[in-house]
Design a protein around this nucleic acid. Sequence first.
RNA 1: GCCACCUUAGCUCAGUUGGCUAGAGCAUCGGUUUUGUAAACCGAGGGUCGUCGGUUCGAAUCCGACAGGUGGCUCCA
Length: 620
Amino acid sequence: MGEQGRDEDKLYAMRHSLAHIMAGAIQKLWPDVKLGVGPVVENGFYYDVDLGPDRKISEEDFAKIEAEMRKIIEADVPFERFEKPIDEAIQWARDAEQPYKEELLNDLKRAGTTVAKDLSADEMGTIAEGGGSAVENVSFYKDGDFTDLCRGPHAESTGKVGAFKLMRVAGAYWRGNEKNPQMQRMYGVAFASQKELDNYLKMLEEAKLRNHRRLGQELDLFLFSDLVGSGLPLFTPRGTVLRDELAKFAESLRHASGFQRVSIPHITKTELYKVSGHWDKFGDELFLVKSQETSDEFALKPMNCPHHNQIYASRPRSYRELPIKYFETTTVYRDEKTGELGGLSRVRSITQDDSHAYARPDQVEGVVAGLIGDIQTLYTTLGLTGMRARLSFRDDSDRYLGEPKLWDEAQASIRRLAEANELQYFEAAGEAAFYGPKIDFMVTDAIGREHQVATVQLDFVQPERFGLEYTAEDGSAQRPVMVHCAILGSIERFLSVYIEHTAGKFPVWLAPEQVRLITVNQESDTVEFAQKVQNQGVELGLRVTIDNSNESVGKKIRDAEVWKVPYTVVIGEKEMSSDRVVPRIRKDMDVLAAHPELNFDEFLKTVANEAKARVSQSSM
RNA sequence: GCCACCUUAGCUCAGUUGGCUAGAGCAUCGGUUUUGUAAACCGAGGGUCGUCGGUUCGAAUCCGACAGGUGGCUCCA
């Protein structure tokens, strides 16, 4: 570990120390506060506090708390470490009337250093000493009047903690369990220097400018209506271009990989999900639909696999025709809890580029390898890089269906696939679907944030439940394995990522408006010329618009910039007489810049080719 | 669903300790202008201040409920 590692350790200690300082400040202001845990997180720290049922900290209190923290920092008192036997520590917590600490210590005593069931390893790590045997002593840190049980490490003294800012207060359940009382989680950010803190805050401002909700409004891509309901986005013509073009691209990849399109209704009798197993697992997320005609109970489909299974099951299948691969871009509906909705990232009508392949066991790896290739092609084309794969496996809880032996085989097979396809991967226990393990793909956006996008899942539970079969070479009936895959994942969620990644500067093939023609005046020959150019463009499959409004050219140029149109062409006397195009090219693009001297015909063809080739811009 | 905060015109926002007919810019519409690469000029329309209820002589402003939103928690097939 070099210089950088030591700096990171130092920063960690600073942030951790600030968590203590904040807790101390809060305790000074509200002496009977009950403290939870206060770990370091990305960019800062938090501390969970509980002022009792009738009192809450709000953001208005931040100035007060920060002032109190600064007093502690200015006092520059040392962080002193000492140890107590576990029983004395428990007594300390009892005397201090800190029931949450007492609970942690009791778990620590009972469970040793193994992680208590409800507590994440990281949280536990902040209070427990390492080692494998039962805990006998626990360590404390004291700065001034404030003492907290803590593993450390800390800064030397409260004066050496860098620059910080309290950011927000949020509700958080004690130990992350919604059955436990809810505490207030105080978040702060902290860096070694004020300059780094300022840079971080500036980055947050930039992220705000890219926010997909804001751009969705500014660029007229999608909206929500109170009458339609929350979590139900409506897409405008411009937004629909994005959706359609993305879906078309995903579809073309599927087509090349031998998938066949199918089409299913958006509702079904609930019976379907009782057979599939979804009813028991996810019944509370179903939108139920009533018929006025029959007594059957219907639901809006929350996933597509059971429907697709019915198509597979509609006739006897031979080993010769496997793998059978169905694909469809379609919308599913999930009754998400209102507090979980947000912009396009979490919606109640979710459009998936969903596929289900039914394969013989010996074909599974080939099918999955093909899907991985398609996923890589799509994200590379979209300029989303740094792909990582999460191998989502089961843990030892009882929420999974299917034979453990099948799970082991499938997980081993997924591991082999990750190796064979040279994926950069890591494993995560407890992330599997209830019916099988999966590979989840994450990509990194233009400002360094990682998002989960595509997913490939193996499933042996549903073929069993639906009695899916094929006739093998020897005439016996065999079970196919199902492979679920969505490349874009949810188109809505994908757009939330992609709009922020591009900041709304879409590449030509996705741009809702690819070429905007600006007339210098409203004379009929100018307008007719523009219309002729537009028609030519439309014939080439381009999205060309004309702005012949009665505004100055300067104003119309500005408008085109604001709408982030890739190519803008002013049409006036010069262009009409010379048939030369001097396109105004959006600054992030570099494709046409190499061909400055084109006539209208050449220009349009060049743009059409760029769109057809799905060229991504090099800089975003 | 839980916690904190937010909601004034299509958008972004002003609106003093509760007190005259609730304002601005952009956008929209009408007129003048016929324009050359990031904002021409003049004028007009547009608001039950999220909704409902309460306190008050008087509510955009104070209180409550509900709806919608933001950030978290929990969840995410």
